[in-house]
Design a protein around this nucleic acid. Structure first.
Lengths: 195, 195
DNA sequence: GAAGTATCTTTCACGAGTAAAACACCTGCT
DNA sequence: AGCAGGTGTTTTACTCGTGAAAGATACTTC
């Protein structure tokens, strides 16, 4: 969550006309971001609210999805960042160094250090020193770690599919494709905008 | 950040064939999520990776956008959650209680308490006790707070528009619409899935 | 081959968010 | 009136992530 949005609320003193009126959980039609955009437009009629409708919704979807999405993981006693770390190890198929893991999972090196420590204590990850360069460590899944990932992943994907099931397949494909386009753009030239 | 993804990395001992090879910053074509999906499919050919392509991309877009998006705000000395709080006050037009603000900004009451404290100390927000019910506080923007929001918002939206400018307007509209559909679904029946 | 510089990882100190408990106050029931 | 229970807000104790510094090792150059 973030972006210039939030659900619309009701708060009217005595006898105001029953104007907008949408509970935070959203009205029967239209999402909360749409309501927020309407509010902004009422206050600042000249504003170009186009970007909010995209960015606000992305942020809001991400927040909701993360909240919901983690349910199957928690049952396995894993947080999402922990699962991401294990997953990176699993899907690449080979050992990774802490630095590589940090890049893979888009988190700081410090965070990786901590997570690896916990995961090794739990017996899911093993570390091995490099013979050539004694600064680096090589991390790999233990058998237990691999089994855990392989056991969770199908349930996780099925759960995610259920979460998305309100949308039909073609729309999901279209959405994935547009997001891919946006993401490609962002990953390419974001950082060139560091004004 | 989060979701079952992360960029692909290179790590090969001596003489392996130059197989996949995409730096974390993404290859010339295709986003990082696509690369991750390819890795998963190579390891688990039977998997339905559809959900990852949507959810993974949403999460990754959100992470990148938040990182980039906040640049104009930081110049004004505000974090995104602080701006969201001020924005909620501004766009609703009337006073809000801490509880309402928490719902508006999708954050916990405790977080709102802390932010409000800081913002009142900075002279951007004022509080007023309720005469009837002395538990509740009513919060409103000071003139300085209102001016700050009004001063930042156009720059913020222009910046966001620039961030999205790699996509043409019809695609942005399409994306916004699909996200709105998804968000409507999620907001409606998410929580019914609390398995 | 020694000094300086770059790189990989971990440690430290801190800020931010959360859940749960604590408070403070209202309200309805007897 | 008095109290049981509910609601709005703040406090507390804790977790987690981060940036910056520290630590350890490799490379480069004179």
């Amino acid at each position: 969550m973030t972006a210039t949005e939030g659900p619309s609320s009701e708060r009217d003193q005595a006898g105001e006309p029953p104007e907008d009126r949408e509970g935070p959980a959203g009205g029967r039609r239209g999402d909360t971001v749409a309501a927020v955009v309407r509010q902004w437009r009422a206050v600042h009629p000249g504003l170009d609210t186009g970007p909010m409708e995209v960015i606000g919704r992305i942020n809001r979807c991400a927040a909701l999805l993360q909240q919901a999405e983690d349910a199957p993981l928690r049952r396995a006693g894993l947080s999402r960042p922990e699962f991401d770390l294990l997953g990176a190890l699993r899907r690449t198929g080979h050992e990774l160094t802490p630095g590589e893991l940090a890049r893979e999972t888009f988190s700081s090196g410090a965070a990786v250090t901590k997570r690896v420590k916990q995961l090794t204590e739990r017996g899911l990850v093993e570390r091995r020193g490099d013979a050539r360069d004694r600064r680096v460590a090589h991390l790999r899944l233990t058998d237990a770690g691999r089994d855990l990932v392989d056991g969770i992943l199908p349930a996780q994907l099925a759960y995610e599919a259920a979460v998305l099931s309100g949308m039909d397949a073609p729309d999901q494909g279209e959405l994935a494709s547009l997001l891919g386009e946006l993401l490609g753009q962002l990953e390419g030239r974001l950082g060139a905008l560091r004004t």
